[in-house]
Write a protein that binds this DNA or RNA. Sequence first.
DNA 1: ACTTAATCGTTGACTTTTTCAAGAGTTTAA
DNA 2: TTAAACTCTTGAAAAAGTCAACGATTAAGT
Lengths: 157, 157
Amino acid sequence: MSPKSSTIATGIDRFLGCELAGEIEFLAARTRSLGSARANALLAPLGLKVRSYSVLSLACSDLSPTQRELAEFLSLDPSQIVPLVDQLEKGGFVERCADPNDRRSKVISATRAGHTLYKQARLATAKGESTSMERLSKVEQETLRDLLSRIAFMPAN
Amino acid sequence: MSPKSSTIATGIDRFLGCELAGEIEFLAARTRSLGSARANALLAPLGLKVRSYSVLSLACSDLSPTQRELAEFLSLDPSQIVPLVDQLEKGGFVERCADPNDRRSKVISATRAGHTLYKQARLATAKGESTSMERLSKVEQETLRDLLSRIAFMPAN
DNA sequence: ACTTAATCGTTGACTTTTTCAAGAGTTTAA
DNA sequence: TTAAACTCTTGAAAAAGTCAACGATTAAGT
């Protein structure tokens, strides 16, 4: 047995010590790439992708997000939100409601069916996340979440 | 003064407590998005983007990566490496060398000019990274790097 | 040795994602 | 009341991602 024991050797181990592997932007990119591939696979049976899942998640919150807010929070162009909401609306999972405070905006809220779908989808992403994090202890997982959230919401400056 | 004091209010603060904001995959996506936008802006004067910078970085290591290895390490399709190396080669920063062990492979290595360019580029990305991480202490930064690198290199399973 | 299967870089076609400018309707400020 | 700013939407164009196939080369099976 030339590789250690448990996991499959990927062949990139010899790059682990290189300078690039120490840059958080690179690490974040790889983390996202692996994570979203996994999440997409788990969400596919529900007819969702990571993007549409994210919109559904916010629509299921009690925060009544506008499309503009969805775009900013999800790091997307406002024009990218349109087809995402279109598709969820077509499936009957989400509704565009008039914003009482500002008739320019449209507030996205989940229907009953949307909430039901989200419950299942959330289980899928939670499963993916626990797979991604399986090499970290519970405490480490919370630390990671905290540190990441502190740099993920920096103002544009 | 309605916003606190220092930093610009982005308007997404009210979403910080939502369920999605607690998912690492989402946090990694936002981190990458902010980070690569900043890095691209800093690398642009050098004629590089994050992608080409990453290839150059590995070419400057003493690891003699093949294109296949570059693809795997950078989470890209092998066919995406081709134009990246083409461009760097055209600029005289990188060379495709025959792999003595396997004539199918091509080893990518940096030229003198490539090393020079990389030194400057590395300064740019380091500056971007320190901006990204400015809300974290030095110890926290190292913790984040360690935790992320442990989940960023999981085997495919 | 010889055939078969697998791998590497490359190309080309195709889909998806990203980016950007502009338009119609609405709100805010002057 | 006009002008400027903002929201959603559309459409076009560029960039990125996916995938199958090819020639050249290596590895495996017999």
